[in-house]
Amino acid sequence: MNVYAPIQIALPAVALTLALGVYLVAVADRVMAGVIAGSGPELRAAMLTPLRGAALAFLQWRRATERPDAGGWALAPALLGGLAAFALALVPLGPGLVVADADTGFVAFSAAIAFVMIAVYLHGWSPNSALPLHGAYRYGAQALSFQIPFLLAMLATALPAESLSIVRIVEAQATLWNVVREPVGLPLYLVVGLGVSFWGPLNMPDATDLAGGTSAEDSGVARLLWGAARASMLVAVAAMGAAGFLGGWFGPFLPGPVWMILKTLALLGLILAAGHLLARIRIELFVLVSWAILIPLALLNVFVSGAFLL
């Protein structure tokens, strides 16, 4: 059963959600930074600063490099943002409230996550400059390592649903949420959430030690768009996490979509807090942990959830 919303509803819905989400991420990130630093929330400043920064980006001059791949450079932020929109379109907000209920929702989401690697690599390679290229290769090592644990963690959620459709995966959690059924799944998934938007402890490709990494040569609107695309990826990943592990729209008293939004916000807050509280992880260590610990752990998770279904 494939259900797709008509395009004139789907496009504005996804675009609006992402725009709101990006702004929310920018505000929440500043508020959290203030709280953690001890200077208080400073709500007013946090709400205005992202808008002011965005307006200033339009006035900034465009920096050029020697012989860049102009097409690829312009395409990279659009690709990353497009992938976020694609992933978000697969997430159901409530029963029947979904842009695209594909039979292969899980595989489609995984494909989007895999293409994030391409977007980041393109973004680092196309300016033809040393520091962005370093960032791109860092991300290559990082992303190839977390892909497999991510696929296995998501696969375990498809087992109780006996389907690859995201809607069915949520429906299978009517009595028991996946976060209880397979407690290892959500932490594994959140590692990926940090990874695909290279946030906080996993921000190696755009790190400050590379003067901004893949976005070191970006300026003006291009830089703004890249930041927005990263934030929208974060929103999409949090929404999918809420659907895949926290029972989606199920919850007492409140209507389904409200629960879904609350859960997404909770996951978003968790990821953003991790970005401020955790130290950056060295790539060698991350690769080692991914291959030697996370993959066996994720496999065990699949086996245990399979055993419960027998």
């Binding site: 595989v107 494909a111 293409f115 391409i118 992303a143 190839l144």
Partner: peptide, 11 residues
């Protein structure tokens, strides 16, 4: 699956 596979492979 083709998309998923090829993205990793190209990297």
């Amino acid at each position: 699956v083709l998309l998923l596979m090829m993205a990793g492979e190209m990297l």
